[in-house]
Amino acid sequence: MKTAKKGDWVQIEEIVLPAGHRAPQVPEDTQKCDLKLWVKGVLQADAELGDEVEIKTVTGRTAKGTLCEINPRYVHDYGNFQPELLQVELQLKEILFGGDE
């Protein structure tokens, strides 16, 4: 869905400091990047992704920015199987308990 309705839970993106206007102590690679900010809230008027919008956050604060996600989901998980961890497990059991016997 690309269109969000007033009252939807959304995430917006805002540029706080454009590249070149970062803090002086920031290293070179970071100087080339904008300082970006994301925050979630309730959309105040119908809008499409990429539109400049206004949201109300859960603390009641109004924030403005570019609409970037509608009903944003959490993307983190338990990752892929890691063979090293199994190897560590089997090794530790062998050292301490002597394997299968």
Partner: peptide, 17 residues
């Protein structure tokens, strides 16, 4: 836990925000 989370890209300007 009901908090508003403001997320930023890398940089010490976090403290300014």
């Amino acid at each position: 836990y009901g908090a508003e989370v403001v997320q930023l890209t890398v940089g010490p300007e976090l403290f300014t925000t």
